[in-house]
Amino acid sequence: MASQGTKRSYEQMETDGERQNATEIRASVGKMIDGIGRFYIQMCTELKLSDYEGRLIQNSLTIERMVLSAFDERRNKYLEEHPSAGKDPKKTGGPIYKRVDRKWMRELVLYDKEEIRRIWRQANNGDDATAGLTHMMIWHSNLNDTTYQRTRALVRTGMDPRMCSLMQGSTLPRRSGAAGAAVKGVGTMVMELIRMIKRGINDRNFWRGENGRKTRSAYERMCNILKGKFQTAAQRAMMDQVRESRNPGNAEIEDLIFLARSALILRGSVAHKSCLPACVYGPAVASGYDFEKEGYSLVGIDPFKLLQNSQVYSLIRPNENPAHKSQLVWMACNSAAFEDLRVLSFIRGTKVSPRGKLSTRGVQIASNENMDAMESSTLELRSRYWAIRTRSGGNTNQQRASAGQISVQPAFSVQRNLPFDKPTIMAAFTGNTEGRTSDMRAEIIRMMEGAKPEEMSFQGRGVFELSDERAANPIVPSFDMSNEGSYFFGDNAEEYDN
Rank of each mutant, 00 (worst) to 15 (best):
T6S: 14
S9L: 00
Q12P: 01
E18T: 02
N21F: 07
N21W: 09
A22E: 03
E24D: 04
I25A: 08
G35T: 12
G37E: 15
C44I: 15
T45G: 01
D51Q: 00
G54C: 08
S69L: 09
F71K: 10
F71H: 01
K90W: 00
V100Q: 07
D101T: 00
K103D: 03
K103Q: 08
L108R: 01
D112G: 14
N124M: 03
D128Y: 03
M136L: 14
H140K: 11
D145Q: 10
R152C: 11
T157H: 04
G180E: 10
G180F: 10
T188I: 06
L193D: 13
I194N: 04
R199D: 07
D203V: 04
R204N: 12
G209L: 01
Y219T: 08
R221C: 12
N224R: 10
N224K: 02
L226I: 06
L226D: 11
G228L: 09
T232H: 15
M238G: 15
R246C: 13
G249T: 06
E254N: 12
E254G: 15
D255V: 05
L264M: 03
S274F: 07
C275W: 12
C275I: 05
L276P: 13
L276V: 13
P277A: 14
V285C: 09
V285T: 13
F291R: 04
G295R: 04
L298N: 05
L306R: 03
S314Y: 08
L315P: 13
M331Y: 05
A332T: 15
C333E: 13
S335Y: 12
A337F: 04
F346L: 05
A366T: 09
L381M: 01
T390A: 04
N395S: 14
T396R: 14
T396N: 02
A401P: 02
Q409Y: 00
V414N: 10
Q415C: 02
L418R: 06
F420R: 12
T424W: 01
T430G: 00
G431H: 14
G431Q: 02
D439E: 01
E443G: 04
M447Y: 00
A451H: 15
K452L: 00
P453L: 09
F458A: 10
R461Q: 14
R461F: 08
R461P: 15
A471K: 13
S478W: 01
D497H: 02
